[in-house]
């Protein structure tokens, strides 16, 4: 699936992350701003790419502003932004998320 419109999820509160998904052709690109960039930057970028792959995203820009969120929150915000972009609200494939 390719990103056609933009979508946003999450907040800038402590322990949360705000994720935007935007059209970007060619590949999945991750842009990260993080309060813990030095320590977890590479890890978060890998997590975002992995999540995108699971969701079947072929291209798009994932912009993350991270405020020290745990993995489960970062993943959740990316998935929320993704489903907001696709408009799917029911019958999510929970077993693979």
């Amino acid at each position: 699936m390719k990103v056609t419109t933009q979508a946003i999820a999450g907040t800038l509160e402590s322990s949360d992350a705000q994720v935007m998904i935007l059209p970007h052709s060619g590949s999945v690109k991750v842009e990260l701003t993080s309060s813990v960039f030095d320590q977890y930057g590479d890890h978060i970028i890998a997590l975002a790419k992995d999540t995108a792959k699971t969701l079947g995203l072929e291209d798009g820009l994932i912009k993350i502003v991270d405020k020290g969120a745990l993995d489960c929150t970062i993943k959740a915000r990316i998935e929320t932004a993704f489903y907001r972009m696709t408009g799917q609200t029911a019958d999510l494939p929970w077993e693979v998320l």
Binding site: C72, A76, T80, R84, T89, L97
Partner: peptide
């Protein structure tokens, strides 16, 4: 929608 996905990831991973 956001809370529900956060719920699932929390149940699953925390």
């Amino acid at each position: 929608d956001s809370a529900r996905i956060q719920l699932y990831q929390t149940l699953k991973h925390v």
